[in-house]
Amino acid sequence: MNAFAEFALGPFSSLWHAGNLLDKAGLLMFASTGAAFALKSGTFNLGGEAQIYASALVTAMILSTPSAVAAAELAGSGGSAGPALFFFALACALALAAGGLLGFIPGELKARFGASELLTSFLLSAALLPVIDFLIAGPLRDEGKNLLATPAIADAFRMRSLLPPSLMNASFFLACGTATVAALFLSRTRAGYRLSVAGTAPEFARFAGFPVKRITVAGMTASGALHGLAGFFAIVGTWFMCHQGLSSGMGWSALAIALIARHNPLAVIPASLLYAWIESASDIAVLSSRVSFDSTAIVQGVIFLFISAKLPIAGQLRAVLKKRRAR
């Protein structure tokens, strides 16, 4: 019992751990809102890893170009913040575009050739990950450091920590906002309505004259772009440089969260917090134990194994919740 309490409370043992938990939950929230978006439109986006990774790399590259560095210096030395803001916005836009493109390709392949986006999004991601690894270790590496990483971005581009010394910053609240906006889009607009109908009832949607193919592509593209947002904030809020393996496991985690949240972006918020808590707790536990291993993969594996299962206990729980909601 003691051991369990230690495990469960580990992430709250210090401001550092707790703040990092929130920061991690924020990044996961962006990505899992994206995963939920794809699920809502009836597609599976399994390319989250590369979408996050590529966008992070793009962000880091834009913000470490000489002109961006000069703009940051100008802002840092009391000059106009305009150019720095411009580069910040540009990096954000390109990160969105990079993620969006990686979502668009499998979406378009599905719409045009009927290729399963499950497999193509995964394969595209798996093929790109080593290429990005190569870029970070080779041409784009910061030669001055020991790390396999791109140069760090200037202070002016970094989001300030709200809970020092932890990494927690305003991106957490932006993530909550993004998930809420996504939820409102799905439930309160015609476009959102059509997207969910095309997801649950594709034949009916086609019959009713909805542009089902375009919806598929849009759903995948939006999903990719939201993953891209996670990549962007991972650089400007959390790590400040793109290091090798930055996105490792995040794409899968995001999908797991979206599934836990039953494709509902609003439910993604608590689900991300819960997931980040489990992951942080197991990370801390593994750090303090003798054997080191990939605990994230096991957590994700267990979630994928159980998430869609109709367990008798879960069924009872759902019935109880339903009754309560009905009252």
Partner: peptide, 13 residues
């Protein structure tokens, strides 16, 4: 599909 994917993750862990 999901349980099969979980085998990949569990295997690596």
């Amino acid at each position: 599909f999901l349980t099969a994917l979980s085998v990949n993750l569990l295997s690596s862990g």
